[in-house]
Design a protein around this nucleic acid. Structure first.
Lengths: 265, 265
DNA sequence: TTGCTCCTCACGTCACGTGAGGTGGC
DNA sequence: TTGCTCCTCACGTCACGTGAGGTGGC
């Protein structure tokens, strides 16, 4: 009496779920078939053929909204539409492949956040007597620096790396790292700032370390301030120290960028 | 006075939209920063560092829901979690690549819906005098057949293809295709059905064409009926013709499957 | 009665995007 | 006043999936 198959059979035949077929009905992708006495949908061969075609396009990545017009369109439109879908598919594949590449580099620590050279730089520090905590602190600074000023990062890193060959520079900076734990009004900070500034003045080439990160465009000073104030809450003494060093250098005639109005201080 | 950068600056610095940052706030991925006098969010270096890390993981394809726990977790958990994400990424890439493969075959007509051999079979028909309309009709039948009975399809196709070498078989079938346009009660249909059945009985090997699609499991008769009744509305004479042929074969003692109760007839 | 299939809402998923309607400082 | 950035809801996208609550035939 009742011709045609039920929605469950139709779904099983073409390899989709019942919900999928009902979804296609709601979208108007497939006409509603006739119903039997129990109000069950009954699918005939034409319905199945339509379903197979819709499914094939959907499985090939054609957005559902485009399948209806596509099936009604002729050969030419079909070909260009398919080429268009392929473009978008290629885009997505490219994006996913890039993500996978990032993931692989994430697997070894900071592989994405830092460059190879930055990690080599950080690897030098323990041998120079820098504590693990301080290395972590510096690492964070480098991550932030690279994210905010990618154009200046390689240059900056190379200069700092070169400066590590100078024992005096290393010792001064180790003192600065210790100073981060001091009270902000510790009197030793002023002395240390003076010593640091004196070093820069006595080694003018090393001043490039400071200037390599400075303003290039309107937003750059905001970026620079963010880097300078990195971890200011945990180490207020550090902020005071760097401010003092900059102040002394300026009064000695070194041209440093003025903090932007309203952003810092 | 007001330290930190605005949401617009923060977004520009790390290369996302403002909406994305607000979205991360809603999900609790990033803490809300303090507000300034205008109720604007002000981001400090810590906030930026967090944002950079979240963004890096998100850009690497880590689901947002997993990024929070991941950043708080230690090295071991991190490594296994990343490996897990990579698994899922590979899955998606595989799927998309398969879709692209389907699309490429879709570009030349019916490349996905039919096999190479099926298209070669269809290509033979015009030379044998089958009209373009009838070829399209047969094509649909093959698509439906392959979708519903993929295991039997190759076998079936090979048998029909072989039968095309017999001129008598070809001529009989061309008559059947013409008959599809007749009135269902056309007296010529009975004659044609008899001729068709006689051919099968005289060439028992060709009977495999019919049986190769018949029942293997519970649902198969429903599938077979769908194929048999393909386009029944447009060509009721066709249905009557095939029914008559089957009837005559049965009364001649050929074992054909009985139509399932409730599904056909 | 139990189990199975079917039915129709209505809401959830994922990572944001898109308005709508409004404020604050130049 | 105009233009720009910011604010908070609330709903939309995409291809379905997940219940909730109910029916019909064995």
């Amino acid at each position: 009496m009742s011709r045609g198959v039920t929605i469950g059979q139709a779904a099983a035949f073409v390899g989709v779920t019942i919900k999928t077929i009902r979804h296609y009905h709601r979208l108007g992708l497939i006409d509603e078939p006739r119903r039997d006495g129990s109000d069950y949908r009954r699918y005939g061969s034409d319905d199945l053929l339509r379903l197979v075609r819709v499914r094939t396009l959907a499985a090939a990545g054609v957005p559902l909204a485009e399948i209806g017009p596509l099936l009604d369109a002729g050969g030419e439109q079909f070909t260009t539409a398919v080429a268009d879908v392929e473009q978008r598919l290629n885009e997505r594949i490219k994006n996913l492949t890039a993500q996978r590449e990032m993931l692989r580099r994430l697997a070894d620590a900071d592989g994405v956040l830092l460059t190879d050279r930055a990690r080599a730089f950080l690897d030098r520090l323990p041998d120079l007597g820098v504590t693990a905590n301080d290395v972590a602190f510096i690492r964070e600074g480098l991550v932030l620096t690279r994210a905010l000023i990618p154009e200046g990062f390689d240059d900056y890193l190379a200069r700092v790396d070169r400066a590590l060959d100078d024992t005096q520079f290393v010792e001064l900076n180790k003192r600065c790292l210790q100073a981060a734990a001091w009270e902000p009004d510790d009197p030793r900070i002023e002395k240390l700032a003076t010593a640091m500034a004196d070093y820069f003045l006595a080694n003018p080439a090393s001043l490039d370390i400071l200037t390599s990160l400075q303003a290039r465009n309107g937003d750059d000073d905001a970026r620079y301030e963010l880097i300078k104030h990195h971890r200011k809450d945990q180490a207020p003494a550090w902020v005071r120290l760097t401010d003092l060093v900059e102040k002394r250098l300026r009064s000695a005639g070194v041209a440093l960028v003025v903090p932007a109005k309203g952003v810092a201080k």
